[in-house]
Design a protein around this nucleic acid. Structure first.
Length: 678
DNA sequence: GAGCACTGC
């Protein structure tokens, strides 16, 4: 079938005239399209065909890079034009557009970046936000920005062309979006999804791993061997052990046909990930045990059965102690349907839910938007940089708690990115509250420092480190450390055998620095750059992750460009590790901890008891004072990415902050604070 | 002596 015929065969094609009429009639339109409706590829083309006289571009945002790229490729084929001309895409590290580009597919994060220099998004006449139901932080923030840009452009018609907004969603619950956009009308688009029979457990399951295994064998014993199974579980460790158990059970049975059991999760090296796309040998059944990566990011053909544990490992945030943690919890109804749909891509399928029908009914309808489960430091800086000075009252589609927003703004103030102004009932502004009664409101203004920080695609804490490195003369080194910290671990996790673990440990020792993990990561980066010619083999020898190191190099290049554009010189302190750690303190001084006793530390800010993570090079040493990147909470509370510092440095970097902290310290900590590194 | 769902700028 040729491309034009294919386009005409899509269900959406027959209603294209009505769609265009609706789009022309309404400033905002919501399209509810099932999978396979063709909305992502067709809608921008229909608009282009009818609005080609308009000067601005049509943007179509996607939550994921691959989606933006592959859809743009497809559409440029359908339009029979070269990619990057009329149709292009723009993602981090890759801008495949030109002055003639009219349809621009991009990641939502990319449009957010553009908004910082162009809050009214004047380049665009139409903005399509796709997959809004996923409710990523980026999409949620964009909804607010796009709504405000649309209002401003419509009230200021003399100067600006109106902005057309289209939201595309895959879930039935679009009332919230419609209400947010002044009761925008909703158009339903028919999809092309095959039917999936759903079976619930009769009794509540206490052990979903056991139930998954039992269900897999129940299918394996009866169903044709060419029908593949996809199982949804929660994490790497659990998936690896389940893969092993199933393979061994099936082999030891002897009577059953062979099974190819494959793990799938994001941290899996890409070569192993690609195996899930290969066909199993004939007479062998393919079983994939996956995290939620197979819910949206990776689509596998030939899945006939889905087994859904009903569980997910996800991020939770508590503003009380400013901590993000990962926890296994129940999925939402919409996630359950998303997983179910993975069995009906090419033909009808079957989904076994390892929970009862009443358990399903008790699930929340939609997943809690990510913005309500996140630390908002980056979001707060970005929105302040966009000129929003009253974040507490910003029109979010889902409003984060005042506590979460206040925590973010306070931290930004501590980092020197914003300044707080109090307003009294006469309307006079004051940097200090004169009296509590008279101060009726406050607002935050971006500082010069904050303006520079907002240019970096980083956590503001990292951006602050770079700006301090500029003063201290160690920009090169800090950029390298920040780049490595921006990617997943560059050290390969070795869970297989203790022998392998020891080898990996020995390899790591080569880069190890007594100053801590930050300098160790700098050593890894430098060594990788020095050995680039044989990088693949070199990484294998040293148990390092090539993919993540390459990504760190790309990030480093991007950060260097941003530095150059902002007249930050790429200075180097060569081996002066003190300067580097001083720069790190300027962004992470809130993450300092003091040694107490028996390997225990107490954080200076929240007085939490924490330990050095066993993966740290400082695991067996007990420095009096350390700086850490993040806290991870598992059975115990650990600090990850730890460096030795002196408490005097903390006082030097931020005296006002630590003066107030010292008041709260007990005598033991005070004596510790005055001592240096042991 | 332990363990990191997933995106993205």
């Amino acid at each position: 079938m040729n491309l034009e015929k294919f386009r005409q065969s899509l269900p959406i094609y027959s209603i294209r005239h009505r769609l265009i009429a609706e789009i022309n009639k309404n400033p905002t339109l919501i399209l509810l399209g099932e999978t396979g409706s063709g909305k992502t590829t067709q809608i921008p083309q229909y608009i282009y065909g009818s609005h080609s006289h308009m000067k601005g571009m049509i943007a179509c945002t996607q939550p994921r890079r691959v989606a933006a790229i592959t859809v743009a490729q497809r559409v440029s084929q359908e339009m029979n034009s070269e990619l990057g001309k009329t149709t292009g895409y723009c993602v981090r590290f890759e801008d495949c557009t030109s002055p003639e580009t009219k349809i621009k597919y991009m990641t939502d994060g990319m449009l957010l970046r553009e908004a910082i220099s162009d809050p009214l998004l004047l380049r665009y006449s139409v903005i399509i936000l796709d997959e809004v139901h996923e409710r990523t932080v980026h999409t949620d923030v964009l909804l607010g920005i796009v709504k405000s840009a649309q209002q401003k452009r419509s009230t200021n018609k003399k100067f600006h062309k109106p902005l057309k907004v289209i939201l595309m969603s895959a879930t039935m619950d679009v009332d919230e979006f419609s209400a947010y956009f002044n009761k925008a009308p909703v158009v339903y688009l028919e999809g092309r999804q095959f039917e999936v029979d759903v079976f619930h457990s009769v009794q509540e399951q206490t052990d979903y791993i056991f139930s998954s295994i039992a269900t897999i064998f129940q299918i394996h014993k009866t169903a044709p061997v060419n029908e593949d199974i996809l199982v949804f579980m929660t994490g790497q460790e659990e998936i690896e052990s389940t893969v092993k158990t199933i393979s061994e059970l099936n082999k030891s049975n002897g009577k059953l046909s062979p099974m190819l059991v494959l793990p799938l999760y994001a941290a899996l090296p890409s070569a192993k990930q690609l195996k899930v796309f290969e066909k199993a040998p004939s007479g062998c059944r393919k079983v994939i045990i996956s995290t939620n990566i197979a819910e949206t990011s990776i689509t596998i053909k030939g899945i006939k059965y889905v087994i859904d544990s009903g569980m997910i490992k996800g991020k939770l945030y508590t503003p009380q102690n400013n901590l993000e943690l990962l926890k296994v919890h129940k999925i939402s109804k919409s996630q359950a349907w998303q997983r179910t749909g993975r069995a009906g891509r090419e033909s009808s399928g079957i989904c076994y839910r390892l929970f009862t029908e009443s358990e399903f009914e008790s699930m929340t309808l939609n997943t809690v938007p990510e913005i309500l489960r996140s630390n908002l430091l980056s979001v707060a800086l970005q929105l302040t940089a966009l000129g929003i000075d009253d974040l507490i009252n910003f029109d979010f589609i889902s409003k984060p708690s005042v506590e979460a927003l206040t925590t973010a703004l306070n931290d930004l103030e501590l980092l020197g990115a914003v300044k707080k102004f109090f307003k009294d009932n006469n309307g006079t502004e004051n940097p200090e509250p004169v009296s509590k009664k008279r101060m009726i409101s406050f607002r935050y203004e971006l500082t010069e420092m904050g303006r520079k920080m907002a240019h970096f695609p980083l956590d503001p804490k990292f951006s602050r480190c770079i700006l301090s490195a500029d003063k201290l003369g160690c920009v090169e080194e800090v950029l390298k450390i920040v780049s490595v910290l921006s990617v997943d671990s560059v050290f390969h996790a070795q869970t297989n055998t203790s022998n392998k673990r020891d080898q990996a440990e020995a390899a790591r020792q080569k880069f190890s620095s007594a100053d801590g993990d930050h300098i160790t990561l700098l050593n890894v980066y430098k060594a990788f750059m020095a050995n680039k010619s044989s990088s693949k083999e070199w990484c294998q020898e040293n148990f390092l992750d090539l993919k993540n190191l390459k990504l760190a190099v790309d990030i480093n290049k991007q950060l260097k460009d941003i530095c150059t554009k902002n007249s930050i010189k790429l200075t180097s302190s060569s081996n002066d590790s003190v300067k580097i750690r001083m720069a790190l303190i300027s962004g992470f001084f809130m993450n300092a901890a003091e040694y107490q006793k028996e390997n225990e530390y107490k954080t200076m800010t929240s007085r939490q008891t924490v330990l050095i993570h066993p993966s740290s090079v400082l695991f067996n040493s007990k420095p009096a004072c350390v700086l850490f990147n993040e806290i991870v909470k598992t059975n115990k509370t650990y600090m990850r990415d730890v460096s030795v510092i002196s408490s005097n440095w903390l006082m030097e970097t931020n005296p006002t902050y630590f003066k107030s902290k010292i008041k709260n310290l007990n005598d033991y900590s005070l004596s510790n604070l005055n001592s240096n590194i042991r």
